[in-house]
Design a protein around this nucleic acid. Structure first.
Lengths: 235, 235
DNA sequence: TGTCCGGTTTTTGTCGACAAATAAAATGCA
DNA sequence: TGCATTTTATTTGTCGACAAAAACCGGACA
C-alpha cells in the first residue's frame, strides 16, 4: 500500500513539508470520497502509512478540522465530517451568494492574466465534458470558479467560496458515482457567457449569469436528492 | 506575571482543555491588541507562561493560523497578523454583505429564544454606551451581531461573519485607543430598529437597516483612517 | 570601512514515550 | 439468558528531548 507520494514522504522530505503533504492528500481523499463521511481517521495508522510521527499528522488534522472537513470528538477518534442533508439549503444559499459576489467582483477587478487563467480552466472543463470524464469535470469546474474568485481579489470571499466549492465537490461526487446524467454541455455554454460578461466588465450581467448558473447547479443537486429519496421510499 | 486563568491552567486542568484555554486567551489578546500586529509569538515562552508543554501551544497556534489571526513563517517565529490597510476595502465589502445577509436570514428564521439573546446583548451594549466604556461597547456590539447571525442559522455565513467581526474589533480597538469620539448613540437606536425589523420578519427592512448600519460603521472607520493619514502627513 | 565567511545560538519541526480517558471485552449476578 | 460491573485494550493528549534551519555574532580580508 505504498503509493508514490507516500514513499516520497517517507524517504527524503524536507523539514516542514510533512504536514503539507499529509494535509493535501487527506484533503483530496476526503473531497473525492475515498474517505467516506463519518469514517474514523486513525492517527497512528496514518503515521505508519506516511512513515512519520503522529505530531505532523495531528497538525494536519487540526487544520482540516478548522476547515470543517473533519470533526474532532474530544478524547475520541476524529471522523470525516458528515454531509448535512437536512440543512443543505444553507449550503445552497451560501454558494449561490458566493457565485454571484465573486463573479461580480471579477468583472470589476480582473486583469488580463486572470482572464487567461479562467479560460484555461474552462478549456480543461470542456475537454473533460468531451471525454465524459465526470471526475476531472468536477475538478475543472471547481478550478474555473476558484479562478474567478481569485480575480475578484477579495480574500474573505475567496476563502469561504473555496470551502463551499470543495464541499460541493463532495456532494457532486456522491451522485456521479451512482448516476450518469449529463447536462454539463449547458454548464460549458454558461461558463462561456460568464467569461464574456467578466471580460466586458458588465457587472449586472455577471450577477445575472452567476445567479442563473448557481440556480442550475442547485436544481441539479436537488433533483439528485429527490431521486435518491424516492428510491429510498421505493425500497 | 501569573494571572488567575494561567494558574488555573497550570495546576489542575482537564486533559484536552489546555488547547482551548491557550487558544481563547491568545485570541482575546490578539483581538484587543494586547498582542500588537506583527509581534512575534514565541512557543517556548508561552509554554512556560501557561505551565504546559509546547505541544498544546503549537496546536492553538495552528488553529489561530487557520483563522488568519497569526501567520506562520516556516522555520521561523509565528507572528500576529498585520492589519492590511491597503486592502481594507475588501474587508468593508465583505462585512457589509455579511451584515445584510445575516440580518435578512435572522428576519426569516429567528425563533423567540434568539430574539431574547439579541435583546440581551443590545442591553449590554446600551449599558456600555451609558458607562462610556469603549471596550465593552465594542465587545457587546460584536456579540449583538453574532447573535443575529446565529438566529439566521447558516453556519457558513456565521463562520465568516464571526471572523470579520473579530477583525473589526481589532480595527476599532486600534482607534479607540487614540481617539475618544462618540456617535454610539446612533448605533444603539439603529440596533433597536434592526431588532424591530427582525421581530416583524420584514426582510426588506432588515436588509436596508443592516446596510445602513454597515455603511455607518464603514464610514466611521474610514474617517479614522483618513484622520490618521492626515496626522501622518502633518508630522 | 564595508563585505564575506564560518561558527554559535536560538527557535522550530519531529520524534518516541507515557498517562488519562474512553471503548470493548470479560466476568459476575439475578 | 440478560443486565450490570469490573477489567482489559485501544486511542488520544501531553511531555521532554533531539536535530535541522535560520538568525546572530565575530573575525578575516579587500
Amino acid at each position: 500500500m505504498d503509493t508514490e507520494s507516500e514513499r516520497d514522504a517517507q524517504s527524503a522530505r524536507k523539514r516542514g513539508s510533512g504536514v503539507r503533504i499529509v494535509y493535501e492528500l487527506l484533503r483530496d481523499e476526503i473531497i473525492d470520497l475515498s474517505l467516506p463521511p463519518g469514517s474514523p481517521v486513525d492517527e497512528v495508522q496514518l503515521a505508519e502509512r506516511f512513515g512519520m510521527s503522529r505530531t505532523p499528522i495531528r497538525e494536519a488534522l487540526v487544520r482540516l478540522a478548522g476547515e470543517g472537513l473533519v470533526e474532532n470528538l474530544p478524547n475520541r477518534s476524529t471522523i470525516v465530517s458528515n454531509i448535512d442533508f437536512v440543512n443543505l439549503h444553507t449550503f445552497f444559499d451560501a454558494i449561490t451568494l458566493m457565485y454571484r459576489v465573486t463573479t461580480r467582483l471579477a468583472g470589476q477587478y480582473h486583469r488580463p492574466a486572470d482572464l487567461a487563467d479562467i479560460r484555461r480552466h474552462q478549456a480543461r472543463f470542456v475537454a473533460a465534458v468531451a471525454a465524459e470524464d465526470a471526475l476531472s469535470m468536477i475538478a475543472a469546474n471547481r478550478d474555473f470558479h476558484a479562478a474567478i474568485a481569485v480575480a475578484g481579489r477579495n480574500p474573505y470571499f475567496t476563502g469561504l467560496f473555496l470551502r463551499l466549492l470543495d464541499e460541493g465537490r463532495r456532494i457532486f461526487r456522491l451522485y456521479y458515482q451512482s448516476f450518469d446524467d449529463r447536462l454539463p454541455q449547458e454548464y460549458a455554454t454558461e461558463h462561456d457567457g460568464i467569461i464574456a460578461a467578466i471580460a466586458a466588465r458588465d457587472i449586472d450581467l455577471c450577477d445575472r449569469l452567476a445567479r442563473a448558473h448557481a440556480d442550475q447547479i442547485v436544481r441539479q443537486i436537488q433533483a439528485f436528492v429527490a431521486r435518491d429519496q424516492r428510491q429510498d421510499i421505493a425500497l
